[in-house]
Design a protein around this nucleic acid. Structure first.
Ligand SMILES: [Zn+2]
Ligand SMILES: [Zn+2]
Ligand SMILES: [Zn+2]
Ligand SMILES: [Zn+2]
Lengths: 166, 166
DNA sequence: AATGTTATGTTATACTATTACATTAATCAG
DNA sequence: CTGATTAATGTAATAGTATAACATAACATT
């Protein structure tokens, strides 16, 4: 069934079964909400699906445009409120330097995502590497700084795109 | 003369001579431009000075408002163009998650800044810790990803503010 | 001075996000 | 089931951030 696009870290290969990939994300979200007695409403579910449509970060207004295909009256707050919920639940991360949003593969335990973002194809891979977290923690501690939310975003070229240059 | 606010890493203490601190930043900028035959125009110099006024990230429109005190016709492009120049020369960094800009202490060799940003007082300390860079580099390499620009922003509580709680 | 280049002025607009308040839908007590 | 309560969404307006496009001015080179 192609490459497992939930594999972290890594970029999804070309052949991966993306329908399955999105389906799993939606299933995880449903299960997560069920356990926490939260409401994965049709709107929230749809926004999550739209965020997952590619493995690339999507802008809020891009999501809004898609959403309007089936929900004609949707407005910015419609999307931003759904995103707020999904982010609070760890199902979506915000990429600061793109003002864009991307689905998270492992919402079970809270974490700030660490991202590799390809400048060529736009795909984003979430890596959650404890070495990076540890290095930040060590450095901050030496400065007497108590660490909260972290933003780790690395722009560069993914292996697929680097290979394509040959 | 108080704590040296150019010391990296670290947060400037209360007593540091900030006039001197800004003066040094402007001097470094002038020297940098002289060596590279770049023009540190009055506008660019003033914007750099405004960015340096606090050790806290400043928004573009906040800079614009200050700038207008002495340059009545200033408009958004006035500020953004100066910031573009200063960023390209490594004299200023952009803090993505605040949409704000902060002066860099070491523009000599190009680098992406790593920042500790206090959620209480707003001060930003630039740390450029090779351990963090190395961890990112290692992780990216294992994913086959070639690293370009990095965004490392850590929000938390600085030692001054943590101490103030007592 | 004539020319080409870089920087700035100026106006308008695009893009991103939030406020405020009205309405609807789900939950819960009785 | 009804009514009260809370949570979610609809809707309109606005705030905040950044850029496009073109004109003018300053600077550098010949
Ligand atoms: Zn994640
Ligand atoms: Zn790529
Ligand atoms: Zn720096
Ligand atoms: Zn502080």
């Amino acid at each position: 069934m192609g490459v497992d696009c939930r594999g972290v870290p890594g970029f999804p290969g070309e052949g991966h079964d993306h329908r399955e990939c999105v389906g799993q994300a939606l299933d995880r979200a449903a299960e997560h909400c069920r356990r926490k007695s939260l409401r994965l409403t049709p709107l929230r579910r749809k926004v999550l699906e739209l965020v997952w449509i590619g493995h690339r970060p999507m802008g809020a207004y891009e999501i809004l445009a898609s959403l309007r295909h089936e929900r004609q009256g949707a407005a910015p707050p419609t999307v931003y409120r759904a995103l707020d919920f999904l982010i609070a639940q760890g199902m979506v991360h915000r990429i600061e330097h793109l003002n864009a949003y991307v689905g998270c593969t492992g919402p079970d335990h809270p974490h700030a995502g660490q991202f590799l973002i390809c400048r060529s194809c736009g795909l984003a891979a979430e890596i959650n590497d404890s070495r990076i977290d540890d290095a930040i923690q060590d450095s901050a501690t030496e400065a007497g700084f108590s660490v909260g939310r972290r933003t780790i975003e690395v722009e560069g070229v993914c292996p697929n795109c680097a290979g394509a240059k040959d």
